[in-house]
């Protein structure tokens, strides 16, 4: 398989690698960059666990090839933590509200919600529900996730 050279920025770092043209972006992130916080749940765009940001927008990394990310700015769940090691407001809100149990879907939720909150500082419950409709969680039943998003939005507006 011929390698393709790609250059991209991941969590603020410039990355330059040669990859198989068929390598999925999700596998590139996990296997080549060893950023294993991005999880793979279905590989056909249904579950949302692999959600990352590409050029600021939340996307499914299992539905993109790594070569398509050439020249892009990618952010994964590993970018959320504060420099001093403290959780950011959204991560803290998830923990405070028991918005995770097994935690496998959580990175996808965090990435979906963090971009949502940038555009909606004071969302109502219906908007929050719509925002997370593309992410599946099997443990929590979603109520606590909604609570956590509300708390995170309030923390920002305060």
């Amino acid at each position: 398989m011929d390698g393709v050279k790609i250059n991209l920025k991941v969590n603020g770092q410039d990355i330059s690698r040669e990859v198989d043209a068929r390598l999925l972006l999700s596998d590139f992130i996990r296997e080549n960059l060893l950023l294993t916080g991005t999880h793979i749940g279905c590989e056909h765009g249904v579950c949302g666990a692999c959600t990352i940001h590409v050029n600021g927008d939340p996307v499914r990394s299992c539905l993109m090839l790594a070569v398509q990310a050439d020249g892009c700015e990618v952010k994964t769940v590993e970018s959320l933590i504060q420099e001093n090691g403290d959780l950011n407001h959204l991560q803290q809100a998830f923990s405070d509200n028991h918005a995770l149990q097994c935690g496998f879907c959580t990175p996808g939720f965090l990435m979906t919600v963090s971009s949502f909150l940038e555009e909606n500082s004071n969302p109502c419950e219906a908007e929050i529900r719509k925002c997370i409709s593309g992410n599946l969680c099997r443990c929590t039943g979603y109520s606590n996730i909604i609570k956590a998003v509300k708390q995170a939005a309030q923390t920002v507006s305060n």
Partner: peptide, 22 residues
């Protein structure tokens, strides 16, 4: 009671079987 596992799970540093490498 605060869960001990939350910190690693919300920071993407949990260790699921797919994350194990050798």
């Amino acid at each position: 009671v605060k869960r001990k596992e939350d910190y690693r799970l919300v920071t993407g540093t949990g260790q699921f079987v797919g994350d194990i490498r050798a």
